[in-house]
């Protein structure tokens, strides 16, 4: 005989009365540490026990960098087209549509301007969840326009890279975005406007071969994968065993390609400290 017996048929609890079980209640870090989702958010999405920096997107980075999470998004409406009529196992427009529905994003980068420690900062932040953060025409154009905004307003510029590289479905058009974004960075450099490149996990391929490595300072978070060719490609090509920690941010720091690695909780402070120092302005609290 059953211990409990259902007296009434069907589920009677209305949605509002259901117990609160939010999406992703727990987070498990790669070392196996379990974190409460709320606690994770309060800790800048870093697992408190092992310091693991969880992959986050533009929404989270904007909330970390902009005062009171207030910012104005730039060129939010730009969307990809399908100029090559690209089709592999899926049609490119179908891929785009699926990515947009899944992520609620228009494409793989969002740009915004807002106050960070009281002063304007322009930030272009890539979203890895959108087709692997791949760079096509929209990413190139939005970054170029954001850089142009920074140029016109003489505002420091920051790109947060998080990308597998160029978007294959736009082939050579996406390759040329490396040149396009570099044009704007050259103009920023000529105008003496600081550009900060934050390389986050992962930053590979075309992004590394363009704006991610071109900052007045290149910085990163602990344990991020940063490289030109992915580790699998390097191993397959050379047949060599890869040393431990190959292509991590610590590896790049050691080999001279990063200025420093910062914990996410210090990101806002350190970025603004650099800006105050390099522009010879009084330090902000």
């Amino acid at each position: 005989m059953a211990w409990f017996k259902r007296k009434e048929k069907g589920i009677q609890t209305s949605t509002e009365q259901k117990k609160d079980t939010p999406r992703g209640l727990w987070y498990k870090s790669p070392t196996g540490k379990i974190v409460d989702a709320k606690e994770l958010e309060q800790n800048y999405f870093v697992s408190p026990e092992d310091g693991y920096h969880v992959r986050i997107g533009s929404e989270e980075y904007f909330s970390i960098l902009f005062d009171e999470n207030k910012y104005k998004e730039l060129d939010a409406k730009l969307e990809s087209k399908d100029p090559l009529k690209f089709e592999d196992t899926k049609k490119y427009p179908d891929r785009l549509k699926a990515a947009q529905e899944k992520t609620k994003l228009k494409d793989a980068v969002r740009c915004a301007v807002g106050k960070s420690k009281g002063k304007d900062l322009v930030v272009a932040c890539m979203d890895f969840s959108f087709i692997g953060g791949s760079m096509g025409s929209v990413v190139g154009e939005k970054i170029a326009r954001a850089a142009d905004y920074a140029l016109k307003k003489k505002t420091p510029f920051m790109i947060i890279s998080k990308s597998g590289g160029a978007r294959m479905m736009e082939a050579a058009l996406s390759l040329m975005q490396l040149a396009k974004t570099s044009v704007k960075l050259a103009q920023l450099a000529d105008a003496g406007i600081p550009y900060i490149s934050l390389c986050t996990d992962p930053t590979t391929g075309g992004t590394t071969a363009s704006f991610a490595m071109l900052g007045d300072i290149n910085i990163s978070e602990p344990g991020a994968l940063i490289g030109f060719a992915g580790p699998r490609v390097v191993r397959d090509t050379t047949g060599q065993e890869l040393p431990e920690g190959f292509q991590t941010s610590e590896f790049l720091l050691e080999h001279g390609f990063l200025d420093f690695i910062t914990h996410r909780k210090d990101l806002k402070k350190k970025v603004n400290l650099y800006i105050d120092l390099i522009t010879n302005q009084p330090l902000r609290e």
Partner: peptide, 26 residues
């Protein structure tokens, strides 16, 4: 393609290409 080797990564393949692209634009 640019060589996807271990030493190439150590010596900054991405940075080298990026720097060239930027300098060539101007």
């Amino acid at each position: 393609g640019a060589y996807p080797g271990l030493e190439a990564e150590e010596r900054g393949q991405g940075e080298a290409i990026a720097r060239n692209i930027l300098e060539m634009t101007r």
